[in-house]
């Protein structure tokens, strides 16, 4: 029975992936671009949820690693690099290294302290990006003057074509999400949930809780960096505001909207987030205030997020059904 359920899940995921694949062929360009952004931010939110939903650590500085990744890509491409692959590896690596250094300090505390400390160091990265003019261009950011073309089977595809960009982002995020999927289902993934459930018990059966936390922090930072690299290619620039804590709150909100207890919850939350943004910004400029107003009841009444509550509801219904 467990196997059929597993088959169903896999089939469902493949179906959704195919739906995503057909996106650019049926949607107008504007919506393809929104979908691209949903994928990038969804990846960021999923990297955040490895810490939050799985390990029980609320990181409020995830945008810092996202930004570090974006600047790594921008710097590599503006200093004469012209390999798409290397530019993303640079984003991944920069995110991982930054997360290793900062995480070394952050994992010493947890709960609210972890939230405060990650927020602090995230803002430190923001301050660097904002003020180190010679390296980062300050508040103007670093524009990408050339985005290398995607070389596939001897043909070149320009990433300035929104459809090409979308399919490229879809491929990279799908690979990263697959990697995350493996991580949460590995023995290491079990250790992370054990930290969330009872870190003291885990330490008393012989685990180095801080080392495990640090490993999770580095993986999350690397994937956030990767998402940042994609975001930089997508926008053709890196700006300091993507390191700001206001930006860090986005993956948090997406995860809460979608549900932290579900693997794909944050991605779903990203879709809700952008949907709401489209809806609200078409009516008013002050979208953050509405976001706050929407968030209050979600936090109070939907503790498992919207997708999570929906799934709970379906589960109880199927249980009640004869």
């Amino acid at each position: 029975m467990a196997d059929t359920k597993r088959m169903q899940t896999v089939a469902g995921i493949i179906l959704v992936f195919i739906l995503f694949l057909t996106g650019p062929f049926i949607l107008p360009v504007y919506w393809t671009m929104i979908l691209t952004e949903i994928l990038i931010m969804g990846l960021l939110a999923m990297s955040f949820n490895l810490l939050f939903g799985y390990t029980g650590l609320l990181s409020f500085g995830q945008a810092g690693f996202f930004g570090v990744g974006a600047y790594a890509t921008a710097l590599f491409l503006s200093k004469g690099g012209n390999s798409l692959f290397v530019s993303l590896v640079a984003a991944l690596g920069a995110g991982a290294v930054a997360a290793l250094v900062i995480g070394f300090l952050c994992v010493r505390r947890d709960e609210i302290y972890f939230a405060m400390i990650t927020l602090g160091f995230g803002m430190m990265l923001y301050t660097v990006a904002h003020n180190w003019l010679s390296l980062t261009g300050g508040s103007d950011g670093l524009p990408l003057l050339n985005v290398p073309a995607l070389n596939l089977l001897g043909r070149e595809f320009s990433l300035f074509d929104p459809n090409v960009m979308y399919l490229f982002v879809l491929t990279v995020t799908a690979l990263c999400i697959f990697f995350l999927w493996r991580v949460v289902r590995s023995p290491f993934g079990l250790m992370l949930t054990a930290i969330r459930e009872n870190k003291q018990r885990l330490a008393f059966v012989g685990a180095g809780v801080q080392h495990l936390r640090l490993a999770a922090f580095v993986i999350a930072g690397a994937l956030a960096g990767m998402a940042g690299g994609l975001f930089c290619l997508f926008n053709a620039m890196a700006t300091p505001d993507i390191l700001h804590w206001g930006f860090s709150s986005r993956p948090v909100l997406m995860t809460v909207l979608g549900g932290s207890g579900i693997f794909f919850g944050p991605l779903f939350g990203a879709a809700i987030f952008f949907g709401l943004e489209q809806l609200i910004t078409s009516m008013t400029e002050n979208w953050m205030i509405f976001l706050g107003i929407i968030l209050v009841p979600v936090v109070i009444f939907f503790p498992h997020g919207i997708l999570g509550t929906l799934m709970d509801w379906m589960r109880t219904r199927t249980k009640r059904a004869p």
């Binding site: 939050f52 609320l58 939230a115 706050g292």
Partner: peptide, 13 residues
């Protein structure tokens, strides 16, 4: 704790 944090964050927004 995270829900309490998020609620005060919503107030901040």
């Amino acid at each position: 704790i995270s829900f309490q944090l998020l609620l005060t964050f919503a107030i901040l927004l």
